[in-house]
Design a protein around this nucleic acid. Sequence first.
RNA 1: GCGGGUGUGGUGGAACUGGUAGACACGCUAGAUUUAGGAUCUAGUGCCGAGAGGCGUGGGGGUUCGAGUCCCUUCACCCGCACCA
Length: 853
Amino acid sequence: MQERYNPLEIEKAWQERWSSSQPWKVSEDHDKPKYYLLEMFPYPSGRIHMGHVRNYSIGDVVARFKRLQGFNVLHPMGWDAFGMPAENAAIQHGTHPAVWTRENIANMRTQLKRMGFSYDWDRELATCDADYYRWEQLIFLKMLEKGLAYKKSAAVNWCPECETVLANEQVEEECCWRCDNKVVQKELDQWFFKITHYAEELLDETDRMPGWPESVLTMQRNWIGRSTGCEIDFSVYGSKQKIRVFTTRPDTLFGATFMSLAPEHPLAKSLTTSDHLREVEAFVSKVQSVDHAQRTSDDYEKEGVFTGSYCINPVNGAKIPVYLGNFVLMGYGTGAVMAVPAHDQRDFEFARKYELPVQVVIQPEGETLEAASMTEAWVGQGRMVNSGVFDGLDNETGKIKVTEFLENRGAGESSINYRIRDWLVSRQRYWGTPIPVIYCDDCGAVPVPEQDLPVELPTDIEFSGAGGSPLAGLESFVNTHCPKCGKAARRETDTFDTFVESSWYFMRYASPKFNLAPVDREAVNYWLPVDQYIGGVEHAVMHLLYARFWTKIMRDLGMVSLDEPFENLLTQGMVCMETKSCPKHGWLYPEEIDNGLCSRCQNTVVSGRNEKMSKSKKNVIDPDGLINRFGADTARLFTLFASPPEKDLEWNEQGVEGCSRFLNRVWRLVYENLPIIKDADQVNVEQLLPAARELRRQVHRTIKKVTEDIDGSFHFNTAIAAVMELVNSISAFPDKQSAPEVMREAVESVVRLLSPFVPHIAEELWQNLGYDDSLEHSRWLVWDENALSAETLLIVVQVNGKVRGKVTVPADADKGAIEAAALADANVARFTEGKNVRKVIVVPGRLVNVVIG
RNA sequence: GCGGGUGUGGUGGAACUGGUAGACACGCUAGAUUUAGGAUCUAGUGCCGAGAGGCGUGGGGGUUCGAGUCCCUUCACCCGCACCA
């Protein structure tokens, strides 16, 4: 055995071995319990970053651990390979997106292998392969048939920078999720997936997903945004037209004193009387000139204009004026709101501004509201008043009764409204899955026949960077014939949102080479659902909601029998580092700093906040550099040890060195003790001296702790800490020579317990301990309950809740004996002397509290 | 505004069903060894105090023999949604 730990050398050797033996290649095996462990696949940007290192290190621990526990573990890896950066690279450097992507994949695959992650590389897939996206196109065709995919013209989010439309989920604070530029609204004809059809199921299911973090479920619930209420028809005075409103407060219907319509409401024009025409037109154009961001901002002043028309309240026949309101959104509910100023704050402000009547119809418990003196709306509970036959009802009952009343008269019906909109999936970009549709002047939009799939993305394409999809200018792609009538026709040139590919890749992994259908049912039945999914919380709504939706689509198309794709979800925290900047040169990379000075101008470097690692702020650590200095095992160990997975991880150079030191210590532990333990036998439990017995106790306690910390909770940091403690104890163990068997068990346990975290060094040490077979083929350690129990226990003695002494008692001592020992302690006696002992609380195995007074 | 989360030493973080707060690691201090070390080893390290002891888990209050943990209240920061009718 070598004296020095040489991580680079041993890691290379083990990786070569793994590369040829493919130890993690799996197939369906019905004799073993399956375990599907998945980490979110990366976009092939070219190089892995610390976020990947963390994500995949966490996953790899679980994969290796589950394998050692006897599970048949599916642990695949692949590439989310379509997307904008490839196109930008093409425009900037003239490299074809396909070439750029392939090169990046090759690089990143090498990097992942250098980290020692245990993937079944045989199942590797890239979403830009026609063998992958052809199945997506097929599913799309089936969705078209069922009406789950459709095209419509709508006001959509347009990112001028990316020159494409975006789904609602992909707009963050009015900015593009990818490039962070302002998004504008545009009326465009686009493809949608009917996710709203599944809103109910997607929402209800969240109550039955105990394996997901509550925060993610909450975000999804908020995003889906169900509100229950009813829709009510108000007929227009002197006309046959009706205005339909949605409200969650039918109990306040008697308090409606006016109506507010969105400026874009289809009836807005026809309801405007000639004498109000000028004001209304001025108002509408003013609202339209304001962008969406401003219009929905907090301090945007509520304004409106009277149309000149009136409508009739269906419950009391009241004639109320119809206004247009700048705060009413056409995109939610029906675009029309019955205004109840006494019980809605917006309506209240509007009413006060335009001097419209306020009618109280809900009286709160214990006070009496007067419309004239109110300073804000009462939005809470109460009893109904001024509401005809409903007077006296509590308002919650009133909601039901009023709705029933309306239903009986055909003036309304109960209704559920969702905030979520259908998923806009078409993108005006090249590097994506072509949408398999052909436009014919006579037949309209015609689906590409199944036998003509895949519609392959052409590669002979020019990237001018001039804007618009390059596909649209490629005559050889665009010009085709109508599958129905054979006439000359044009292909759809939009491609799918790349979130479509990531919505089902986890199912394709079950049978990545299957060529008869998107997935092999049998394989999916065996492997799915994913037992543990791990990734960043930034996908809480987008990817995770789309993937749930798509799973239900495939289920309803009869392709899989699965309701939910991910049994357990772990959202890992971000990897953060302090930003550094120079007053002259701005943000600085760590390697641009010498002793706290900017290496270019010698100015003092200013430390900024701890923030998520990002290239733009240069607070990044390159994984390759880290591996070159310390080895992959140290990199893995640090990311796992520095904080629990769900929390943010603060990068710390010294912490990395500490982990490297620890692995060196483990290496020495084996090296130095090898002469003692080399020929040691099994432990003979009967003949152990107390110190050896104690060490062995700690060995088994550690096995138990590491097992439990990994298994349920992923508390790798405490698991590693426990092994560190064990290493410290073994080093300090005085009787090494006289207890070689215990030493061997202890040292071997350290190696085996560390193997899921730092597999290379563990395998190497294992071999040096004299084993020919890989640790991969061994079983995870099981602790011996008998070894855990101690002969004596340390009991803390408190006087009035303050620790005053500690006594050691036999493990089987009864309460009386413990109490006697406690009271006999000299320091305890100092505090109890001459005092009245009122009570003694004895918690066996823990403490004694003497209450004096 | 609504919803969710987090506050513990100089730092990252531990603490099972209420039962020794600060495991483990980093950093720091002193010493040993070394030509030197970003190597290794030993001892120490929450704060105040010479000590006995006192004080300590964002702040205030409560329940309890006993509270980081339970209850009430308040503050700060982070995340998501936000004129959603």
